[in-house]
Design a protein around this nucleic acid. Structure first.
Lengths: 223, 223
DNA sequence: GAGTGGTCTAGACCACCCT
DNA sequence: GGGTGGTCTAGACCACTCC
């Protein structure tokens, strides 16, 4: 059923921008139940191929934007899955003063009591990614007790915090001297960075994290 | 219903790794129809929170990897939506010789007759992204006739090619002199790059494209 | 008010896969 | 063989939104 609809869209029987017949009519035409049609169209809408509105009907999307889904793995698993040895090292851990918080960007400023952690994840002994993380210990009090010399905040949080929304920015930065030293590259080298903020279900800011990858890292996504 | 299940997972009533009761039992417990349960669990499985197998039952995923979906927009729309003027300029267009093809990486080598296009997309007169694209004209013969001085290959392909899979790599590179000139930055500046290959539904390679963004660009993704 | 999709029910049969 | 999810049917009522 869903395939039948897909075929029509591909065959441009229903071209981009077209308003489809309503579900009941489609069901009649295909000789199936409306709920079947509903499921099929629903699913295509989830994939971004159709737009649906009550009373407004179902429309083939004009510019079908490609939708890529990519997974944000626990770093340890990402490394181990590629068959390499994983090593983790805590670099520093301290509470931020008010001044320090203001010196960081937007996100960190909003947080209450802030724990700042720097840690390095390595793959087969080579620096892989530098984790720079701020955790709001008012929202996640357990973080004060956690032993981040044994488990990375990355892994600890994923296991502790049930679910959440967030925001992710990807960019290229120039390696600062301090980071270059840790990541064993030259100062000035281009480095791949992700900046992530995470909220819990009450939309309270839990954590902000910058991940700076080794020189030459490519992030891979399936389409 | 779906929310009720979500609550249980959050509340660790069903902790990671737990095997859930079968659909019929859950339906009994919640006092609803099995198909309702099925829809709810199905949907959570799509989001990566549950794993389901016939005969094997439904299990809460052990390490719930965050799944981010992001859209790959037509560049023109991306710029116009941010309220800026869009400008497009074709820089060069030519067919690759066999030697040139081999000089490029893996992807391009696999292609038949290869059309190479370089073009610059600008936002309010500022260089935004440099498009470096190779198109297999055996698979997409219409590309030979297209006027890429008027429409970007980015937009043209999205409108022509119905659907496909692909592969996306994100990285940070050091600006080469030629690219720096076009993008109006310094040679050596870190630049954000995406490398994408796209197949059609028959898994034939259609196009390879490198997008190199202006210095300071951050790609934004919702989680 | 009327027409659309959103969601649910109760029941059925099937496909897969483990033992 | 038997238990699980996958998918479908036929019907119902609801929620939204445009007129």
């Amino acid at each position: 059923m869903q395939n039948a609809v897909l075929k029509r869209i591909h065959a441009r029987h229903w071209a981009p921008g077209t308003l489809l017949p309503n579900e009941a009519d489609i069901a009649l035409e295909f000789g199936c139940a409306r709920s079947t049609v509903n499921r099929a169209l629903q699913s295509l809408a989830d994939k971004g191929l159709l737009e649906r509105r009550r009373r407004g009907g179902t429309r083939v999307v004009e510019h079908p934007e490609r939708v890529a889904t990519f997974k944000i793995p626990i770093i340890r698993l990402q490394i181990e899955r590629s068959g390499c040895d994983y090593h983790y090292q805590l670099l520093s851990q301290n509470h931020l003063t008010q001044k320090q918080k203001i010196a960081r960007g937007q996100g960190v400023q909003q947080m209450g009591d802030t724990l700042h952690i720097r840690a390095l994840h390595s793959s087969d002994g080579n620096p892989y990614v530098l984790e720079d993380r701020w955790i709001d210990t008012r929202i996640v009090p357990a973080a004060k007790e956690a032993d981040f010399s044994a488990i990375s905040p990355n892994q600890w949080l994923v296991e502790q915090i049930p679910f959440s929304g967030g925001d992710l920015k990807l960019s290229a930065i120039k390696a600062k001297a301090a980071d270059a030293k840790v990541l064993k590259c030259q100062a000035g080298d281009p480095l791949f960075r992700t900046e992530r903020t995470t909220w819990n279900t009450e939309r309270e800011l839990i954590t902000v994290v910058n991940l700076t990858y080794f020189h030459g890292y490519k992030m891979q996504v399936e389409l």
